[in-house]
Nucleic acid binder design. Sequence first.
DNA 1: TTGTACGCGTTATCAC
DNA 2: GTGATAACGCGTACAA
Lengths: 346, 346
Amino acid sequence: MKNGPGVVTIADIAARAGVSKAAVSYAFNAPERLAAKTVERILAIAEELHYTPNPLARSMSIGRTGTLGVLVPQPLEEMLINPFFSEFLAGVAAVAGDEGFPLLLVPPVKGSVDLAISSAAVDGFLTLGLETFRPTMHLLERRGLPYVMVDSDPEPGVACVNIDDENGAYAAMTHLLALGHRRIGLLGIRSPQRGRWEKYNGTLHRRVTGYRRALQEAGLDLGDTGVRLIECEVSEEGGRHGFERLLKRGPAPTAVVAMSDLIAIGALEAALARGIDVSGELSLVGFDDIPEAAWVQPPLTTVRQPMQEKGRTAAKMLLDLVLRAATPHHVVLDTELVVRASSASV
Amino acid sequence: MKNGPGVVTIADIAARAGVSKAAVSYAFNAPERLAAKTVERILAIAEELHYTPNPLARSMSIGRTGTLGVLVPQPLEEMLINPFFSEFLAGVAAVAGDEGFPLLLVPPVKGSVDLAISSAAVDGFLTLGLETFRPTMHLLERRGLPYVMVDSDPEPGVACVNIDDENGAYAAMTHLLALGHRRIGLLGIRSPQRGRWEKYNGTLHRRVTGYRRALQEAGLDLGDTGVRLIECEVSEEGGRHGFERLLKRGPAPTAVVAMSDLIAIGALEAALARGIDVSGELSLVGFDDIPEAAWVQPPLTTVRQPMQEKGRTAAKMLLDLVLRAATPHHVVLDTELVVRASSASV
DNA sequence: TTGTACGCGTTATCAC
DNA sequence: GTGATAACGCGTACAA
């Protein structure tokens, strides 16, 4: 496919300057190999003709794109409404930017993560919260691309960054149990398992494990009367809707645990809309500690995870793999229960 | 540069299948041109050898990358802390995602936007809030890339998306003046002009023009005693700091107008920290209407701009330029004053 | 179906 | 020390 006229190539400069393409390339990338005045002449002509190197051809030659890919399991517009994702990205960008790597945000194409991968020109991938990650892993291996998986299950030989979901969830649930709550609704994150929490993987599995460990220590378990899990879309709307469904089925809970602050805030809105006194009649605990969690009324008790640090750590690992051929390893970051006014004794 | 072994190319498949490279290419992209059983054999071998096409080589051949670039004037981590940017991106992503275009976020490299541009392999650029955009425009023209400028000055022949900054600013200031305020502090956005608002361009110029039009109708002007402008970083911290500087210089204002909600919220925090009764003693008006504006106490009066729509509109225009060779045009979206509790009569 | 030129810059090798 | 030559990377598309 021919370029339109008007786009100047290295050959044009070479011809005009009466030198070879190689000389032009050297003038830009290794001027010391050429006589000073030759370099000068070439650069002058390049300027005059408005030459700009074609990044594609360059990448093709040197075998690197200088770009990192961020692979997400949902459409970007859904990811971006969650401040959690923005903060993660900010962390990634802080590290990548230092090395001059732009970020390619790669959402599924026509619902397929695989299609998206195979058409992305990047030097490495960060994957975020993939539920079914095996096929993706294999595809990335095929392409021979380094990658770091964030919020999945640690796999031997694969670089992974996670948070201590289980203990975070355990702390949240223990907190409510200690306050005397026994009828507790869980608002989970929609998963491909469609509510079958026994089959959860990765992040969701670890959180459910943590919640259950706390429940079991109090002689309860998920699935008992008054202790039910409902999956929601990760959005305020999803939280509102989930809370309503919770009320429709079975006895009203005295406490609600959400797996995401966005969901918790939605539940809070739904509760307030019904005239429920949150903290008095109903305790509420979230997960993530997004900035909004501190703004809402009452401020939300939640489990803080270091989102920016997660992004920075993952980006650092990926750049180590890409630039320095490091060995993949695993990192787990701590979580912390942040008690605010949305939770109180029963 | 050779590929490492293990990465399979189209030539490997061709050799193994005993056909030409062209046949392999057709098997993937135009199977109807080949005998069914040939296609089958080729695909089987490709699968067996774990072949994945090289997206770089493909882009090089077809002359398209299938990627849109988003060019930002600051490091990404600074952009991403502003929910404004995330919402804009969400709008862009919604449109780009439908066409299967991933997004390349391109921050300045070593402080240079130009360097960043010339190494980005994209089919078109969206620029956001460039203050000095002429050089960037020229560089993009050089590369022969379509582009859409968001929040700059409308230029003839260049695709531009803007909001009605002037009337938005006018409405905000008129609102305060009607409430009787006459000592009004402006918290602006840091610009390369370093406080010389007479020299502002683009968005900042239009906003200052709107504020001044309102002031002049009340017999005042920027620079009068009690009507001063201070530039801030666009962050809560920047707002806190700006508010403090405002108090240090000259008479205490009865109202503060910020050019960004993030700045306004920072000012709000600083005021509350000083024990100032916001809305009673001090009125506060922002710009953007980010979600937080409605959460803070007291809720923030502000000028709403349709951030997602801005992103969608810009992305649509860019895709029209890229895919359908449309003619560049200009769009201006409306703003709207949203009165909440942070502003009251003097 | 095949052969092959093409897109465009890089780099190893060679000549002066 | 300077610079040219040509192979290379990999998939596409046209002529045959």
